[in-house]
Amino acid sequence: MENSTVSFYFNLTMFVNIGHYRYPVFVFCLLLYSFILSANLVIIVVISRERTLHEPMYAFIALLSVNSLYGSTGFFPRFLMDLLSDTHLISRHACFTQIYVIYTYASYEMTILGIIAYDRYVAICHPLHYHRKMNNKTVRKLAALAWICPAFGIMALISLSVWLPLCGNEIQKIFCANWNVVKLSCVNTLVNNIYGLLLTICTVFFPLCYVLYTYLRILMVCWKSSAEFKGKVFQSCLPHVVTFVIYSITGFCDIALSRYNIEEINPFVAVILSLEFVVIPPVLNPLVYGLKLPEIRRHILRLLTWYKIIK
């Protein structure tokens, strides 16, 4: 075992790659964060106010927006401060807190998208049983399951990492990530690796396979249906498919980046790949659902019209 170095701080080294661009990046990211807050809040307010939107699918869409606010707030305030700072040190406590927030945000996103896929599957493949299977009690159970299970899984992951003796404090990222901390360990991390792999399979690949399975079944039903039915299914499912594909790509990029040697990648590209995971889904989710689903779009326009009249 190497001599471990005791440090109460981690150094986020990737901010060096931003260099003189940090002020334009700060302004851009501040505007982006403001848009994420306002757009997702509009989705939440519209769905909560309008009784016609008090249905399972819209409740889960509102959960996606809540999760976007949660993940963005766990990332942007600290990131904006670091952009204007000359030093990029983060305490161990703050680092593991950030890991917990960002990792639970990622897990929640995947589980909620999986639940939306189940909702669409029941609505399209078993329409006569939809209201029985997707009643208020079931919706509450699924929502609780989507939040509670990942929270305990990530908590166990961090518990395995927090006690590791470390031989360094430099994290090659713009935010704290569990694998980057584990790589600093002076001891064998086989247990951390195995548990991390199992957690990734449970929170990423199981929902991924399930979503693919549900849409395969939906396609089989649509294949034998009328053009009008196909149009309704397309309108209902397209936002979810777009959201799921975008999130899967950004999530894969982040996982690949954490396992790859950052020094072999263009610094600017590395920063972009690090940012997209926590930026693109919260930005696109309200746009996709707000613009593609006519029920939400209509109520948003009505809310904006009412606001203009009051103003």
Rank of each mutant, 00 (worst) to 15 (best):
Y9P: 06
F10T: 13
L12W: 01
M14V: 05
I18A: 03
R22Y: 06
R22T: 12
Y23A: 04
Y23K: 15
L31F: 08
S34V: 14
S38V: 12
L53C: 12
P56E: 08
Y58I: 04
A59F: 07
S65M: 06
R78I: 07
F79H: 08
D82T: 13
S85A: 11
Y100S: 10
V101G: 02
I102L: 15
R120A: 06
N135M: 08
L142A: 04
I148A: 01
C149P: 02
G153Q: 00
L166E: 10
V187I: 13
T189P: 01
L190H: 07
L190M: 12
Y195T: 14
T200I: 09
I201F: 09
I218C: 02
I218Q: 01
C222K: 06
K224W: 02
S226R: 06
K232M: 05
V233M: 00
V233C: 05
F234G: 02
H240F: 01
V242Q: 02
T243K: 06
F252L: 13
F268M: 15
A270Y: 12
L275P: 13
L275N: 10
E276G: 06
L284R: 10
V288L: 15
L293Y: 05
P294T: 13
E295A: 15
I296C: 07
I296H: 10
R297T: 06
T305A: 07
